[in-house]
Design a binder for these strands. Structure first.
Lengths: 233, 233, 233, 233
DNA sequence: TATGAATGAGGTTTCATTCAT
DNA sequence: GATGAATGAAACCTCATTCAT
């Protein structure tokens, strides 16, 4: 297990329900935010009660109000915190790849992204943000500004390198990057959130192969064409 | 007002004291569903009140219960009805294109889809379904089964024709179709629901051109390649 | 089956759910009252709805209002009607007994009364009247005045005959009569309404024998004593 | 106000702005049950509102739900509590009498019972239980099991002593006991609940004398007979 | 700092009653 | 006379929020 995959460590911290800390005022906000994420993530903003959040955090209801002025504030603080925590997962391995075959790089990236999008941590945040986007436009925007955009810029940077190297055609890298993400995300969401998995299961390998193949060839510069392998049969 | 207008006299019978309500049992369900869509769509299932829905429908609260057994039932009936209403928009022009330049066809389709996804009607349904997917799994699944899948099959059919004609490479058409949709949807959602439009506006033409270009080239059979021009203009 | 036992005939009239009379405005009030008795009797005034009453009567809700100004009025009309219908059952066989042995007479009377009190028709009225006595004091009083008092007077008359004949001691016949009724009623109510039957079943014969024996000996004139048989062992 | 009274100064700390509510978690259940009894007892289960109960208890509506899960639960808890509270009143003087004149004993007991049955506390419970026996069969049964039966056994024990002593004839003591109670209860109920008191008042002394006399003679062993005087004085 | 008892506004739901047809 | 769609007041119940301890 690499460092990378540990970005969800905070989510797992309480897996075994530790003996409730009686004195840890500095840790409270985070402790509450994490409980809030687990409860809001699974039950939704309105269905969840602060009583549940408090119980999950191992504290009492009133204590929440010592750190957050209202349920709504707790909810958007939780979203901000989660977006912040989830960010690293969207960074294409930190360093821009070089030397390795570009398609292989894309394939690796696709797998990382797809797996991340299928994660309950991501799906729950997605559901929460989309579901309450109208009620919390600032939260949605901040997720866009601090989550979507930066991650997208990283990915675009990666693509631009390929374009500058002549391997890829020149297309708007920001748009291409988001399109790539969209191709993967739609599977995660329709299969994971809409219950598609049970209605019409799709093997991950086939999804990843097809998407990577399509995107890679869509991007490929004319001269590079000969070197490619065949798509998914 | 001329004599002419007196042919409407029978309709004015109660002009002085209009009837408190009108009988319209056949029209009620649709009338309520549409009000429900407007209210639930903008305010969300939990924030919206049946009082609001009733007011929007121009009826009284109790009347809703003559047609729907509960708020939750009204909500999912509304989703079903909307999915049903939205379906036609997803059908690619009815007949499968042939002979015409495939890229042009894709471009037209992309524009149709993208515009549809940016529609408040779609975005509101999307938000409602995603936001309440956990609470209404059947609704989410039925949207998947009756909305996503059939639309996807149409599009896949369209792509398969191109593959069979040798214009496109052989890839899994269902996956390719959904990936295409994903590329467009992610823009509609991030720009329309997450407030991206205000944070980082993107001209529709650029989105459509890039996406169409990427997807078309990603699909293009090797032999067809020569005839293509470069990326986004 | 004697005439006597047919006093509940009205209650049985609809047992087989006859084809709803479409034209019988004169019969409506009684038809509604009977449905009301069945519904109110089993479900109680507040739990029962006019919808149920209407359905039971085979008419529509609005029609009830053509005959009764309100639910409360229907309820007390129903009570009055029932009390009126139940009265005959309380008359000690119509004619004052003579010649037969007095104890045998009492025994027959006790059985008639006890069986009547165990009847759902009686228990439901009792429950309804007692339960709503505070809300419908007039109904309760009218039941007292028109049901309890007259029936009691009949019974007292029966006892007085025995006293005048020297068979019974001279005691207040009205009080004695009601006490006799009370001895029987308490079994019917505790066993039938409070669920005593399931908790602690008591054979009717033992109840009747003991009660009759006690009351008869309680009433017996000193000189008559020798002739009596032994009580229940 | 003297200096003396200043020892209470600490208690007046918030005199100017009294606390909106007082903590009294231990006292609440009983406090609520008593308010519930007063309200339900006079207005009935359905007519009474929790708002009224709360006001009567001097607390707010929501507080009730901290102690009772629903209105129905409060109602049956109230019944249970009342039955429990009422029990002592039904115990015949604690020790079984002996040697004293049995009729005098019975007379005393009759008066105790009759007075108890005429008590609003009893009449209200009776009305509540009878009125809702169908909706709360468990409550009715528990009243039977925990109220009626034990009280009856005590009384039966009392009678059995007399039988064993040869003063009373051998009859089923449980049935005789309940019959005795029934003779008294019917007056309390018809006069107290059905409004008989206003329609046809009966002096308590006459009721008690007659009933006691009847029952005593009904029970008396043949040999004991000579010592008795005639009926109601 | 932390608690949890208490509050009360607000929402869903029911149903007696009305009234156009 | 009969219907049944429509109404809206009222009641139960929940839960975010407050605050004495």
């Amino acid at each position: 297990m690499t460092d990378q995959s540990d970005i969800f460590a905070p989510l797992r911290r309480h897996a075994g329900r530790p003996p409730r800390w009686k004195r840890a005022p500095e840790a409270r906000p985070r402790q509450i935010l994490e409980a809030a994420f687990r409860i809001f993530g699974t039950r939704g903003l309105h269905t969840a009660t602060l009583e549940e959040v408090a119980r999950e955090a191992g504290i009492s209801k009133g204590t929440i109000y010592l750190y957050f002025p209202s349920k709504a504030d707790l909810f958007s603080a939780m979203l901000r915190a989660r977006v912040h925590d989830l960010m690293p997962a969207l960074q294409p391995s930190g360093r821009v790849p070089h030397g390795v075959r570009a398609q292989r790089q894309l394939a690796l990236l696709a797998r990382r992204l797809h797996r991340f999008f299928r994660t309950p941590a991501f799906l729950n945040v997605y559901r929460a943000v989309i579901g309450e986007a109208a009620a919390f436009p600032e939260a949605a925007q901040s997720l866009y500004r601090e989550g979507v955009l930066p991650a997208n810029r990283r990915l675009a940077e990666f693509l631009r390198v390929g374009m500058d190297a002549g391997e890829f055609r020149q297309v708007d890298p920001l748009i291409a990057a988001r399109a790539f993400v969209g191709m993967l995300q739609i599977f995660a969401i329709s299969q994971g959130l809409l219950g598609g998995q049970r209605v019409y299961p799709m093997p991950e390998s086939r999804i990843l192969n097809t998407v990577t193949d399509l995107f890679f060839h869509g991007l490929l510069a004319p001269g590079q064409r000969a070197s490619r392998t065949r798509g998914t049969p």
